[in-house]
Design a binder for these strands. Structure first.
Lengths: 242, 242
DNA sequence: GATAAAATGTACCAACTAGTTCATTTGGTC
DNA sequence: GACCAAATGAACTAGTTGGTACATTTTATC
């Protein structure tokens, strides 16, 4: 059975819309007769709507700064449903974190690097990782926030505990091929390669505001980003080669 | 005139010590007779005590998560004094940020790199920057927190507005010497060099918790840190050479 | 030693916030 | 169409939190 109710952005922009599926049964004015309102159930839609609103709020204000009432207001449903589906504020926060980590895991799996020559594979991995961070500041900010909290929600999440760190294996495989072909210098650890790529991709987004404040350069500006992207790729490749 | 009251750590560990200079004038029990307590004024000591307590609290819980009452409890003085000297919570936060930026500016100035050969200078700069971040996780966390807030307190701080970005000039000077001597490849911008050094130094500390959670490696552990330090130096030097 | 300004103590509060209680509606099942 | 569990609405609350009002003490100045 198809759901007839959708949470499009237009709808969600309404400041407070508890009756997201208004239908007037009795032909009396909607706002006058509260008891005559009818609605259709849509658990998945409600969950989705809450998660979207929560992500926006947590990303902007952090865990402590986020307000449940504000999330509820951004949602097409009510505060009551937040607690119904997610238990408490931290449960909701955990759900947002989990969804974001699942997404980047999917991204990493989507890269098809095994068939490429080592240097091309590394260039592609670095470039795509840089782009993923640049395109998903929400993810970067959530990771920052989670680190402020010593990643204790990552630790308590059973979903993320089963996260497979295939990315390290992928990097190791590419790197060893490169060494075997004489392209890369030996003696580098796969984790160090990953940390270097991540750090250079992450920092531009995470510290964008303070960099702009201190140095006057907006690293997210469209005329600056490609330059930095190439600089990061160059850095990684120079570290590997020779 | 010397101050006779000092805020040593032992004293500050007391849960709540509003009477930081207890003297019993009347020989009656201290806790029984409130009115008979005397104290000496110590504006600088009080400011210092508040700033220290605030730093600990803000670093641990962020701006929104920090509790003024908790800061007051950690202080050798009372909540009243926080508002007396710093106006409000944000004013106190701004003061903590300003102090931290002044400290790293002092650190950068203390490096004497102009007299060293280019490659040695870069190696020293990278190593010392890495060490500064590793040794000052408080600073790293405050910068993270400030970035979560879009660095709006950096923006509104008149003190930080006058921050001279001499570090970029220093890097440029070293780099150009290195190019002239044929040690470094040409065409790199000083800002990119700085961003690379900063990113690699920052990330290890800022994302320590999530790295440990996802990869099982504690990048702050004493047996891991030197390895990563060398890897960062190698990365920077490989990027510059050839 | 009178005076005033700076510094500090004590008690208090209005607003906010996470979470709850209770009632109602929907939708599947028999 | 009776019944019940899942889903939802609306109002409420207990505890927290940033901030303040008012009184008192200290210290510099004359």
């Amino acid at each position: 059975m198809d759901q007839t109710v959708h949470f499009n952005t237009t709808f969600r922009q309404r400041r407070r819309a508890p009756f997201w599926c208004l239908m007037d049964k009795t032909d009396t004015p909607v706002r006058a007769d509260r008891k005559s309102l009818s609605w259709t159930q849509d658990p998945e839609g409600v969950r989705r709507s809450i998660l979207d609103a929560a992500r926006i709020e947590f990303v902007e204000h952090g865990l402590s700064g986020a307000r449940v009432d504000e999330i509820a207001a951004k949602t097409a449903t009510s505060k009551r449903m937040i607690y119904y589906y997610f238990g408490d504020k931290e449960g909701l926060y955990r759900a947002v974190i989990e969804e974001m980590y699942e997404r980047i895991r999917r991204f990493e799996r989507s890269l098809d690097l095994a068939t490429l020559p080592p240097d091309e594979a590394m260039t592609k991995l670095t470039g795509f990782t840089f782009d993923y961070h640049a395109d998903n500041p929400d993810f970067v900010r959530m990771v920052m926030i989670e680190n402020i909290h010593h990643a204790r929600h990552l630790a308590s999440s059973s979903k993320i505990a089963t996260l497979n760190l295939s990315i390290i294996g992928v990097i190791r495989e590419i790197y060893e091929r490169g060494v075997a072909e004489g392209l890369f210098r030996p003696g580098i650890e796969a984790l160090d390669i990953h940390l270097t790529i991540s750090a250079l991709s992450f920092y531009n987004v995470s510290n964008r505001a303070s960099i702009r404040q201190v140095f006057g350069h907006d690293m997210g500006a469209p005329d600056v980003l490609p330059h930095r992207r190439q600089a990061v790729i160059d850095t990684v490749m120079h570290m590997l080669r020779h």
